[in-house]
């Protein structure tokens, strides 16, 4: 099952490689990983999207906690949470595509952020599956380029990951 794991770690050189190295050394799946400093510049926050049996996820959490630079780890799937990912898609905007892409963009509540003679750039935010759904819905031949940030996650309501 897919899990989103959030963690806070010391914002130090090499910290990211410790997490990435752990996943490759122990053979854990890693679908996406996003990282950036928090409002406290000494801390980085990371969201890791991974998958595995409950036993594997339990081991992943324990192994992450064991890293000396890691301050806190939270399995977002233990409660209710919001998942968001940003995608930029450059699509063909010639002939029938010019109107079609605008319409699809509206349906998925995206935004066209760049208009060129032959293409648009569409910005779309949502869960990973929503972004997948958009790519499935539009004509494959219209896709020129895509770039995705990987998922960020945050617990709903009272669930707060902070020091």
């Amino acid at each position: 099952m897919k899990h989103l794991i959030s963690l806070l770690m010391e914002n130090e050189a090499g910290a990211l490689s410790r997490v990435a190295g752990l996943f490759s050394a122990r053979g854990y799946n890693i679908e996406s990983l996003t990282v950036a400093p928090t409002e406290d510049p000494t801390l980085s926050r990371m969201t890791i999207v991974t998958s595995g049996s409950e036993e594997v996820i339990e081991q992943i959490i324990k192994q992450l906690n064991k890293l000396v630079d890691v301050v806190k780890v939270l399995d977002l799937n233990d409660g209710r949470f919001i998942e968001r990912e940003l995608m930029l898609v450059k699509v063909k905007a010639t002939g029938v595509f010019r109107d079609e892409m605008q319409r699809m963009c509206e349906i998925f509540r995206g935004r066209i952020i760049d208009v060129a003679d032959n293409s648009y750039i569409i910005e779309l935010t949502g869960s990973g599956s929503k972004l997948d759904a958009f790519l499935d819905a539009i004509d494959k031949t219209a896709i020129l380029e895509t770039v995705r940030t990987g998922a960020s996650g945050i617990g709903r309501g009272e669930r707060i990951l902070k020091l």
Partner: peptide, 14 residues
């Protein structure tokens, strides 16, 4: 050295 020992130390520092 920090990179090469990362998988076989409890922790390392440069």
């Amino acid at each position: 050295m920090v990179g090469i020992t990362r998988p076989c130390v409890k922790h390392n520092f440069l």
